[in-house]
């Protein structure tokens, strides 16, 4: 088919990349504030840091409507089953950011009450370091997750708890460019 016959603008791409692009730009976090980090998460959403720039400002109260769980704070033994339940209630595709050292590894609270790393309960995609991580760190973690969504596999998540660290993604991915992969289907978007 001769493209020169068409009089309107259009873009081509493959469906996988399109889906990933759409997913990346509308990740809705669940309000899962636990401790100190929750305050910084709220700060990130407020005026000064403005998560809305990344299409992330829609914090959903219901896990059914959310794609991303930001585990913001230490997870206690009592909270752990609840956390897992909330995670299970979220719809696929879903991602988890472990915010702060307490969520990532138990942090300074290496004791009977705190789960030593939320990755024992749910699979974590990105770990954000800090105690608490500043809003900038959280935004960096979110952008890292965006890059992971954009460049990762579209298939269903494997049942492992292993996540990736921020440094790793930065090295492996080219943030902002479409991954060059084999193109099973081609679609056209014709603007009117």
């Amino acid at each position: 088919m001769g493209l020169e016959d068409l009089s309107h603008n259009f873009l081509t791409g493959n469906i996988e990349n399109l889906v990933k692009w759409a997913r990346r730009n509308s990740v809705w976090p669940a309000t899962f504030g636990l401790a100190c980090c929750a305050i910084e998460m709220m700060s990130a959403g407020a005026g000064d840091y403005d998560l809305a720039r990344f299409g992330m400002e829609v914090f959903r109260a219901s896990p059914r409507q959310a794609d991303l769980m930001i585990v913001a704070g230490r997870v206690s033994q009592k909270m752990a089953p609840v956390l897992r339940q909330v995670y299970d209630q979220m719809m696929e595709p879903k991602w988890v950011i472990s915010m702060g050292v307490c969520a990532s590894s138990g942090g300074m609270f290496n004791n009977y009450a705190i789960v030593q790393g939320v990755d024992q309960i749910v699979p974590v995609d990105v770990y954000a370091p800090g105690c608490p991580p500043g809003p900038e760190t959280l935004i960096n973690a979110i952008l890292t997750l965006h890059a992971k969504i954009q460049n990762g596999e579209i298939t269903r998540r494997k049942g492992t708890g292993a996540g990736i660290s921020i440094g790793e993604v930065k090295r492996k991915s080219n943030v902002g460019t479409l991954a060059k992969k084999n193109t099973p289907k081609t679609v056209k978007i014709v603007s009117k």
């Binding site: 401790a35 704070g73 230490r74 206690s76 009592k78 909270m79 609270f109 004791n111 009977y112 009450a113």
Partner: peptide, 11 residues
């Protein structure tokens, strides 16, 4: 309550 019990007094 207790969903954020951190054991700080023990720590």
């Amino acid at each position: 309550i207790g969903y954020l019990h951190t054991g700080m007094e023990k720590t």
